[in-house]
Design a protein around this nucleic acid. Structure first.
Length: 256
DNA sequence: ATGGTAGGAAGCCTA
């Protein structure tokens, strides 16, 4: 069972890339982030035509997350439980083939020098940690997939100096990400391979051509999911194509 | 030290 995660940076602008990816990589589950449209505007027919069920949690212009799956998608929750006052569409959770899967678009958190964006990010992470704890208690396979907007370690960044002080590398962000690992979740990619690879390259300054990337998209696995981990990887193909997202898909393969 | 690119909205915000 291949489970992938991809921040598409507008599903409308990225529909050709998305259709290609579903055909070529054929993941069993694909978690999407940054849809940038309302639920009714999602290209549902096009995706269903490729054999996928669709569950979305969208909003106008910003954010928006979805879960696509070949198998039926059950018991859908929209919005991060316990964070009901949050009006940004950044979390959807559902069951596919007995696995609990979340598609997460964690706040960016920049700039860090006012009392709006960065505290919002850290507070959002606290709620995610609480939810992750509840899911652990079920003792079922859980996959928390998405754009975490966290560079876990310096090695996950082409130039750590250039990112010093950024919300993606600040200790407060990294500590909360590490908290998820300490609870018992495994970083699917890092657990499988020591290889350095990135999931995001800025549109500017020829970052893609120079491989000036960062690894901020992650799939975190509960112990019951980690037990089934067979492979993990980053599909860099989509980032090099015409009119790409600035992110590329990352995936794990679990034994089912 | 600055500005570079992309997407969506609407004449600026987010990343």
């Amino acid at each position: 069972m291949k489970i992938a995660s991809w921040n598409v940076n507008s599903v409308k602008a990225r529909l050709p890339r998305l259709e290609d990816y579903l055909k070529d990589a054929a993941p069993d589950v694909l978690c999407l982030q940054e849809l940038k449209l309302v639920d009714d505007a999602f290209p549902r027919k096009e995706v269903e035509a490729l054999g996928y069920h669709v569950e979305t949690h969208g909003q106008k212009t910003y954010n928006g997350v979805a879960i696509l799956a070949k198998e039926p998608i059950e018991d859908v929750i929209r919005g991060l439980p316990g964070n009901e006052t949050d009006d940004q569409a950044r979390y959807i959770e559902a069951t596919v083939k007995g696995m609990r899967i979340a598609s997460i678009y964690l706040p960016n958190g920049n700039p860090t020098d006012d009392d709006v964006k960065f505290p919002y990010k850290l507070n959002w992470m606290e709620h995610l940690i609480a939810r992750a704890g509840e899911l652990l208690k079920t003792e079922k396979p859980v996959v928390l997939a998405g754009d975490y907007n966290v560079i876990p370690q310096d090695e996950d960044c082409y130039d750590p100096k250039a990112w010093e002080g950024d919300a993606l590398t600040r200790p407060e962000s990294r500590n909360r990400f590490r908290c998820l690992l300490n609870m018992g979740y495994a970083d699917g990619y890092r657990t499988f391979t020591p290889d350095i690879n990135y999931t995001y390259w800025d549109y500017q300054r020829g970052a893609w051509q120079k491989d000036h990337g960062i690894r901020i998209d992650h799939l975190l696995l509960s112990p019951q999911a980690t037990d089934r981990l067979e492979r993990a990887g980053i599909d860099k193909g989509p980032r090099g194509q015409e009119r790409p997202s600035d992110h590329t898909p990352i995936w794990v393969e679990l034994d089912d």
